[in-house]
């Protein structure tokens, strides 16, 4: 699938995950690659973009027996964006589905 197209959808997936709980980068990467077939390296540019856009913030948290992990947390803007983008995406998908069904007849 087209990378640019996929990226927008992946952003939504990341927001969805972070809406449930704060995660560190690797956690997000694992979660996404478990569900969607993408290169592992794709997640970090998305996280950076979300941070630059003010959708997420980061904080460091000490872990027992390891270096501190960088956690990503949804900002207020991120949450609002997620809610509206989710609605938009779902109605878009529904419309595309209906369109493709039309094609089958």
């Amino acid at each position: 699938m087209n990378v640019q197209y996929k990226k927008g959808v992946l952003e939504l997936c990341v927001l969805s995950l972070l809406n449930r709980k704060d995660c560190y980068g690797y956690e997000i990467s694992e979660y996404l690659s478990k569900h969607i077939n993408i290169a592992d390296g794709t997640v970090y540019p998305i996280l950076r973009k979300l941070k630059n856009d003010g959708m997420v913030t980061t904080y460091l948290q000490e872990e027992s027996g390891g270096p501190p992990r960088k956690y990503y947390s949804l900002t207020r803007l991120g949450r609002d964006t997620y809610i509206s983008d989710k609605e938009e995406y779902l109605s878009f998908v529904k419309a595309v589905e209906a369109l493709l069904e039309e094609d089958r007849k």
Partner: peptide, 24 residues
């Protein structure tokens, strides 16, 4: 961030080559 990715994957038992290949 990528160093950490390697660290986590290595701990899960993947080889460096495998990890690099999966990263793109």
């Amino acid at each position: 961030e990528y160093e950490q990715h390697f660290a986590f994957k290595l701990a899960d038992g993947f080889s460096e080559e495998e990890i690099a290949a999966k990263l793109g």
